[in-house]
Design a protein around this nucleic acid. Structure first.
Length: 412
RNA sequence: AGAGAGGUGUCCGAGUGGUUUAAGGAGCACGCUUGGAAAGCGUGUGUGGGGCAACUCACCGAGGGUUCGAAUCCCUUCCUCUCUGCCA
């Protein structure tokens, strides 16, 4: 959520920044109008409430002394009417305001490049060189004939579900353990969290109210399957005031993730790239505003080094404004090389949301006497399924089998 | 799932219609004291909004209602605990 004071006072700057994210000015204008209207109505309401409070106190005293209270009572009744009318107006405006405010995306950082979509993302650097083959490299589903069972995944559930067998199942498990250990050594403490969360939790991180269609909802309950560990882990601190000395808090968490992939019909239907259920090891950090850039770099480095340690060639991309997610002020994607597809594909996405989620989720820290909003950051380290198929493709041999990276051998 | 009890600030906890303007305690911060610390004493200390400020409004799980006035009474709902049932 954006700071309504910022919208009231620096309207032009907010519009300018949101243009990068392709948000129309009418929405911001509307938000500003309502917030100003709310402010003026509150200014009318509050003196009435003050009077009501004071007079009601008098009422008690007078009644005790046996004074005549009929006139006072009439006055207070009339005042009560006015208060209830104004309260209705104020409540209504508050609701309107929050409905609009919760649907407006975060402002991008100044160094975020302009651009329409993923084609305008800016490559920052490449790490490692893609391997060369003396045969035509295959795609992962050609390599993994007996290891990933797509047909039975569909039988059990529906399309975009799969079953891992034997060495693939074991590799998946090895990767989760390896990733968690790697992150823990970098100072991220491990947490295990629920996979089913409520509406408040999803509103805190920004998935709701706007993106309900992307979520699996539990029938008959106000509960949803998590689309990423970012949701429960960030919300660990919802409605809390953190002691300043505890910051930054750096966490890592393995969870399954569930996404409807509502908008991606027809994309990546073949193979394991885009599934309704997938495993991911996530990094989540809570930091003071002046720490968050440093923490962001640490997270990018952690995920990138993890890929390097697995011998996987990858590149860093700075997302342009048009491709930036709803809550992100700044995002760096890591894309790993897939020889079978002959291209780089996303395997990690690291974002700084600044105080966008913190304002929604009311995550604050004590700065001397003042409570201030923290910055929250999240990033994958890494998407496990995609890492597994990247290993299959990059370590494949001519006979259709594949090797296991050296660092994983102790985990297999 | 059924029955009972309960949800008050960072924590514990008092509070069944009118100085609650949320007591008291712990913790925390600062000061005094001390060679230093502890203890002791003093002061400060909930959240959110408006205002340069004095100050002011709202908030006692959430949402409605009754009343001139609600933490307190009524309704709805969520959650926690205990017992019973079920279950890995």
């Amino acid at each position: 959520m954006l700071d309504t004071k910022l919208i009231q006072n620096d309207f032009e700057i907010v519009c300018e920044k949101l243009r990068k994210k392709k948000v129309g000015e009418e929405i911001i204008e509307n938000l500003r109008t309502i917030s100003l209207e709310l402010k003026s109505n509150r200014a009318l309401l509050e003196p009435l409430q003050a009077e009501q409070n004071a007079s009601s106190k008098l009422f008690g005293a007078w009644a005790k002394e046996g004074k005549d209270i009929n006139e006072l009572k009439a006055k207070l009744s009339a005042n009560k009417q006015k208060i209830s009318e104004l309260t209705k107006i104020v409540k209504n405006l508050e609701e309107k305001l929050s409905n609009i405010a919760l649907g407006i995306p975060n402002l991008p950082d100044i160094d975020v490049p302009n651009g329409e979509d993923e084609n305008d993302n800016v490559e920052i650097k490449k790490v490692l060189t893609p391997p060369t083959f003396d045969f035509t490299p295959k795609e992962h589903w050609e390599i993994s004939d007996n290891l990933i069972d797509f047909e039975r995944g569909v039988k059990l559930s529906k399309s975009r579900f799969s079953v891992l067998k034997n060495r693939a199942a074991k590799l998946e498990r090895a990767l989760i353990n390896y990733m968690l250990d790697f992150n823990t050594k970098r100072g991220f403490s491990e947490v295990a969290v629920p996979y089913i969360v409520n509406r408040e939790t999803l509103t805190g991180t920004g998935q709701l109210p706007k993106f309900e269609d992307d979520l699996f909802k539990i029938e008959g309950e106000e509960l949803f399957l998590i689309p990423t560990a970012e949701v429960p882990v960030t919300n660990l601190f919802r409605d809390e005031i953190i002691t300043e000395t505890e910051l930054p808090i750096k966490m890592t968490s393995y969870t399954a993730c569930f996404r409807k992939e509502a908008g991606s019909a027809g994309r990546d239907t073949r193979g394991m790239i885009r599934q309704h259920q997938f495993d991911k090891v996530e990094l989540v950090c809570i930091a003071k505003p002046d720490q968050s850039d440093r923490v962001f770099d640490e997270m990018v480095e952690c995920a990138s080094d993890l890929l390097t340690s697995l011998g996987l060639a990858h590149r860093h991309l700075m997302l342009c404004g048009g491709d930036l997610g709803f809550g992100a002020a700044k995002t760096i994607d890591l894309e790993v090389w897939f020889p079978g597809q002959n291209r780089y594909r996303e395997i990690s996405s690291i974002s700084n949301t600044r105080d966008f989620q913190a304002r929604r989720a009311k995550i604050r820290y004590k700065d001397g006497k003042k409570n201030r909003l923290v910055n929250t950051l999240n990033g994958s380290s890494l998407a496990v399924g995609r890492t597994m198929i990247a290993i299959m493709e990059n370590y494949q041999r001519a006979d259709g089998s594949f090797n296991i990276p050296e660092v994983l051998k102790n985990y297999m």
